[in-house]
């Protein structure tokens, strides 16, 4: 088990190097001159531009810039942004906790509601509840996230005034409820459908018939045999989704003014601010790798036949 975890962790090193290289390269290749962009729509002052380029190594060839960056990260120096003149780690460490809060809240919402509704629908396959849930989830999947965001913001935040329409500077948990619901809604629809299908399929599986034949109560059959076995695809989905919730919250963060990673990433890409973009995306990749590792370990818990050596 430990050996397995160790091996998986070692695998993250090449992924780390590959991801930083790829992203650094892509940001480097973005059209436009980032230093010129600092001047807005005013004429570029060549002396000033040259000074900034030299200070942040922007005049060096790509590979030199990248190696300098990599060298810095080995010394735990994640670079200083030429656009904001702040250390990249400052911007990231400020935005990350907010996004983690938002991502975990969204994950909790989609897991609790998604699985509950999915299980009920699966157990009552073909009933009115099942059909309603199927149609409702289809609607949620069909509606773009920004439409959902603006509607909920307008109704709940402005018209009814139950919750703050935006998250605001320090993003207290209460203000994150609305964005978390919006962020969770799409995945929740998928979780419902996934759970429902999985439960419905397992209900007719051999081992369920055996369990029922043994005389186990319906409740015990459902909880211990059907549910547990139905969770594997759902857990996989949720694990993969955590990374997506964090990195893919740009639209939601924009609508609700959540000062998180998505917003930071968006602004940094606009400024071709490579050190911040690379730092942020690398962090997201690491989060993703770890959540996948956790999912793989969870398989063993859910299904005793799976063993890692």
């Amino acid at each position: 088990m430990l050996w397995y975890i160790g091996r998986r962790l070692i695998q993250t090193i090449p992924v780390f190097i590959g991801a930083t290289f790829l992203i650094y390269f892509l940001v480097f290749k973005l059209p436009g001159d980032p230093v010129a962009a600092l001047f807005g729509d005013k004429p570029v002052n060549p002396a000033v531009a040259a000074q900034i380029r030299a200070e942040y190594h922007l005049d060096r060839p790509f590979i030199v810039q990248y190696l300098l960056y990599l060298k810095g990260t080995l010394h735990l120096d994640f670079g200083t942004s030429f656009a904001t003149r702040r250390p990249a780690i400052d911007s990231i460490s400020q935005a990350f906790p907010v996004t983690v809060k938002l991502g975990l809240m969204a994950l909790a919402i989609e897991a609790v509601f998604g699985i509950t509704l999915g299980v009920i629908a699966g157990l009552r396959k073909g009933g009115i509840f099942d059909s309603t849930i199927l149609i409702a989830s289809l609607v949620v999947i069909a509606v773009p996230v920004f439409v959902m965001g603006f509607i909920l913001q307008f109704l709940v935040g402005i018209k009814l005034g139950w919750l703050s329409p935006t998250a605001g500077p320090n993003a207290p948990l209460k203000n994150l409820i609305l964005p978390a619901i919006v962020l969770a809604s799409l995945s929740m629809a998928y979780v419902i459908r996934l759970t429902r299908a999985s439960v419905a399929e397992n209900l007719s599986a051999d081992f369920v018939r055996t369990a029922t034949a043994k005389g186990l109560s319906r409740r015990r059959v459902n909880v211990v045999h059907v549910l547990r076995n139905s969770m594997i695809p759902v857990v996989t989905f949720l694990g993969a989704d955590l990374g997506a919730l964090m990195g893919g919250a740009i639209v939601t963060e924009g609508i609700f003014n959540v000062q998180g990673i998505g917003r930071l990433l968006y602004n940094s890409i606009r400024a071709s601010d490579s050190v911040v973009v690379v730092g942020t995306v690398t962090l997201l990749v690491v989060v993703f790798l770890i959540s996948n590792l956790l999912v793989d370990l969870l398989y063993a818990v859910l299904d005793p036949r799976i063993r890692y050596v």
Partner: peptide, 18 residues
């Protein structure tokens, strides 16, 4: 997919926002 999507979206937002 995520890694690629992340890169892909770098690229897109970059070119539409510069």
């Amino acid at each position: 997919g995520l890694t690629l999507a992340a890169c892909g979206s770098d690229n897109n937002s970059g070119s539409t926002s510069t």
